[in-house]
Amino acid sequence: MHELAVTQSVLDIALRHAGEQNARRITDLYLVLGQWSSIVDDSVQFYWDIISAGTIAQGATLHFRRVPAELVCLDCGQVYQPTGEELICPQCAGTRLRLRQGDELQLEAIDIE
């Protein structure tokens, strides 16, 4: 739902890094999105096509790497990937959990010319 703000930030960060390298063009962007980051790839792509127009990043390809959510049970240490409404440790039925990965919202790298 806040993909516009996210896409704008992606563009800002990419343009800043490209500017530091005196790039003429940004051709590819590599994004890391956690499963629990609640960001929809298609919406980012939709906004990207609009807001990148007229910049050196126009037409660049967005690559999305999805990171699955991974929970650690604070009672027994079991690590598991929740599927749907499953907030109970599959090993000990413990209910105190910590998210170990899956909330990433990162620009990992860009390709420039």
Partner: peptide, 16 residues
């Protein structure tokens, strides 16, 4: 010449 630039920034870091 194409170049791969590592960025590794949180997308909302400006807001943070």
């Amino acid at each position: 010449m194409p170049q791969h630039i590592p960025v590794v920034e949180n997308i909302l870091s400006a807001n943070d």
